[in-house]
Design a protein around this nucleic acid. Structure first.
Length: 509
RNA sequence: GGUCCGUUCGUCUAGGGGUUAGGACACCAGAUUUUCAUUCUGGCAACACGGGUUCGAUUCCCGUACGGACUACCA
């Protein structure tokens, strides 16, 4: 088996879509599994669609999710450059070869003429409105013009493109690793433009030339490329590279959560989840699209989730680190059907990974988040809070959100709970407890428990009846971690003063 | 319209000629818990349809329907 060399070949036209991240991931996993190479190639042959910052964004995003590039524009490598706009001469050479061998030709048709041709054909039923073997002889190109005229046009600077001369009717077959054999008749393929009038190659030429020169072993890309794959096979043949052709694997698409169709930014916005890995500010509109990272998704959770969207190990294991994914990954186990994007499952993965962090790690997150709110917190206290809260968080920010009650006393109380639970019995117990706790500040779970016991016994009231009221007084709400731990974290003095405040505002003695 | 690809619980999926069609997320219920969450237990819920082939088809074949992708001098 030849060395596994895969490439992720995005176009720098904007932020990297989450589906692109998955494509990159599958490429990366295959490379890792076989100790191969992961290549990043920037496909920037469309100068009109160039978006500043997009290339940097792509690299940052890949880095964040943990996809490492072995060869690419920054890292370099034996087949540099890895940016297609810097490889113009290379493509020119191979187009010339195609021209010389009669597999390509010059075409001078203007955009208006092309449109006219398509419109004319559209009205004829049964006809396929495309530039192909049935129509090329009616157009303005080096097949219909004399050599002199062609040379004259080129010399005088008339714009032209170079098209692939696709045979009239031949079967092209390709073996897709995911879908099996796919056969297409060349009668369905049009004479694709290989070289644009600005001298840049199109995707169809550039990807074939680069994959060959870069010794790519597997082309793993989205399903949207499947229809043009036979064209690429044909190009390999014409170039004489049939035997070195890479394997193809066309990935199923990521679908919108409801209904059908490709997952789009619009859907994501509507459903309230991100679609880009990192924050992205559209340079044209200045609009900010929030990223998974900024939303609080951990890269390892995102990766795990994405990996299982379309691929599965055939076992019941669901939690995978990148290493485990690489070890288990097989192209053959990628499904054929598109997968709907279910953010709830992503949240679950996030929760799993967040919980697996230590109290210290969680504590650091808490400290940092509190700091932005102007609250200082010691490490030991942060760790203790993290420990109390760890089972109730899905996102890192939840720790500070839930933990805030340990620093900010409630100003108001949940009215529903108050009306139900704040009664004479509660007032009696809490009044005693308030005084009891005022005395000592070195509160522990034991001393807190005994203080509460003392208070309930003194009032002759069962503990269970007043716990909710106690929680209300301390936190303003009806949920939270263990109450004794809450009191300890608060300290005796603070607990006491909160009880006093509750007694004052909710009524009591 | 044409070409290509696809279709197992609501979602991600396992499976494969004879299975009680398995798991996970979500949802619901019960248990635990001072509350919520966690945890545990249980529940709901699927082979798109029609023909073949076969003793037997969810599985193989052919159609149909539905869905998607592609159909640019974009990738």
């Amino acid at each position: 088996m030849r060395e596994v060399r895969v490439r992720f070949a995005p176009s720098p036209t904007g932020a990297l879509h989450i589906g692109g991240v998955r494509t990159a991931l599958y490429n990366y996993l295959l490379a890792r599994k076989h100790n191969g190479k992961m290549i990043l190639r920037i496909e920037d042959t469309d100068q009109n669609r160039y978006v500043p910052g997009a290339e940097e964004y792509i690299k940052d995003a890949l880095k964040w999710v943990g996809i490492e590039i072995d060869e690419g524009p920054d890292t370099g490598g034996p087949f540099a450059p890895y940016r297609q706009s810097e490889r113009k001469d290379i493509y020119a050479k191979y187009v010339q070869q195609l021209l010389n061998d009669g597999h390509a030709y010059y075409a001078f048709d203007s955009i208006e003429e092309l449109e006219a041709m398509r419109n004319r054909l559209k009205t004829q039923k049964g006809a396929n409105p495309q530039y192909d073997s049935t129509t090329r002889m009616e157009m303005t190109n080096s097949l219909t013009l004399s050599e002199d005229v062609v040379n004259e046009k080129i010399k005088s600077g008339v714009p032209y493109v170079i098209r692939l001369k696709v045979p009239a009717s031949e079967e092209v077959e390709l073996n897709d690793l995911i879908r099996g054999k796919v056969k297409v008749s060349t009668s369905q393929i049009d004479d694709k433009v290989l070289m644009k009038s600005d001298g840049m190659p199109t995707y169809h030429l550039a990807n074939v030339v680069d994959d060959y020169l870069m010794k790519i072993s597997h082309v793993i890309r989205g399903e949207e490329w499947l229809p043009s794959a036979p064209l690429h096979v044909l190009t390999y043949k014409f170039l004489g590279w049939e035997n070195e052709m890479p394997e193809f694997a066309h990935l199923p698409l990521l679908l919108k959560p409801d209904g059908k169709g490709k997952l789009s930014k619009r859907d994501a916005d509507q459903m309230g989840f991100p679609i880009f890995p990192l924050n992205w500010i559209d340079p044209k509109t200045n609009e900010l699209a929030e990223g998974f990272r900024e939303r609080g998704y951990l890269p390892e959770a995102l990766i795990n989730f994405l990996a299982l969207l379309g691929w599965n190990p055939g076992t019941e294991q669901e939690i995978f680190t990148m290493d485990k994914l690489a070890a288990a990954f097989e192209l053959e186990r990628i499904g054929k059907a598109g997968a709907k994007f279910d953010i709830q499952k992503a949240n679950w993965f996030n929760q799993q990974y967040l919980r697996s962090k230590t109290d210290e790690e969680l504590g650091q997150i808490l400290i940092a988040d509190l700091k932005t709110d102007g609250i200082d917190c010691e490490t030991s206290k942060a760790n203790a809070i993290a420990s109390a809260l760890r089972e109730r968080i899905t996102f890192p920010k939840d720790i500070a959100e839930l933990g805030k009650i340990f620093f900010i006393a409630p100003k108001s109380f949940d009215e529903k709970i108050a009306s139900k639970k704040w009664n004479e019995e509660a007032i009696a117990v809490i009044s005693v407890l308030k005084d009891e706790l005022k005395k000592s500040d070195g509160l522990t779970v034991e001393t807190a428990t005994s203080a509460l016991e003392k208070a309930t016994q003194q009032s002759g009231i069962a503990q269970g009846k007043i716990m909710q009221a106690l929680r209300l007084a301390l936190t303003g709400g009806a949920s939270g971690p263990d109450l004794m731990i809450t009191m300890v974290l608060l300290g005796g003095l603070e607990t006491s003063s909160r009880l006093a405040y509750a007694l004052d505002t909710l009524g009591g003695k």
